[in-house]
Amino acid sequence: MDNDPMIEVVKLTKRYAGHTALADISFTVGRGEIVGLLGDNGAGKSTTMRILSGFLPATSGTARIAGRDVFYDSREVRRRIGFMPENNPLHTEMRVREYLKFRARLKGLSWARSRARVDTVLAQCSLTEVSQRIIGQLSKGYRQRVGLADALVHEPELIILDEPTIGLDPHQIRSVRQLIKSLAGSHTVLISTHILSEAEMMCNRMMIMLGGRILAADTPDNLQNLMAGRGQVIAEIAAPVTELNASLAALANVETFDVSPAEGDFHRCAMTPRTGCDVRPEIFSLTRERGWALRELTRSRNSLEDIYMQVTKPKEEEEG
């Protein structure tokens, strides 16, 4: 069973009365991967996670975790996952250690083992100094870490986190991200988020969801390369305008270009290369041959925001 992928979802559909939350999605997640589910609110991220954690049944299709069906073998699956739902609900009247101990016992850990594990996750999530505080009196950052500690306490193979950094300040976001990154390799992690940079930073692979469908799924780098052909090359060169125009037009790999004056003798050239070509070495040798001064040469990569907007845009127009 160790050869089975961690998550295997085949043609999963979830319909609520009146609308379809998930439409026929399929994906697999291998062991040790950190995968980000990306999408607007209502894209189907939370529904996917709730089905995977066994809280909701799917309307049709199958989902398997470590080779076990989430519906028919629900308790075995739940033993293997640590789930932190959206908004991180906690028993606010309990103390941090008491809560984690309770959760560990609930997840079937023996008394001695739950004690040891609670100490471990308290240290792992930097909660040791607040372990005797009442959860309801803690700041949101601490509460979020309590939720994470709860998801980790029984050493699950798969950790499912629904928007783990929502509502945190930048420092707290950073520490939560570092914590999640440190889980890579030993655990498989599925995270949902609508912040692109976050997915880019933490995940090996991203799945972009919209309206209950998966629109694109790949590594952040591949997703960028997919769009890189459209990226522009910017160069600032000190040269007479006419000569500059002529020599740029002569370059075979430059599809279109635009020259605008910058301060001093410099001109700013924005070039769109032919798909798949890198024209930067040619620009450099051109300036060296002519003896022109070159003070900037960069390729503007499409940010993930652009990719996201491009991927999700046509669909929105269809719906509108």
Binding site: R50, F83, P89
Partner: peptide, 13 residues
Amino acid sequence: SGTYETLMTTPVS
């Protein structure tokens, strides 16, 4: 409060 979800996603019957 939503803790029903955390309760029901642990291996309890």
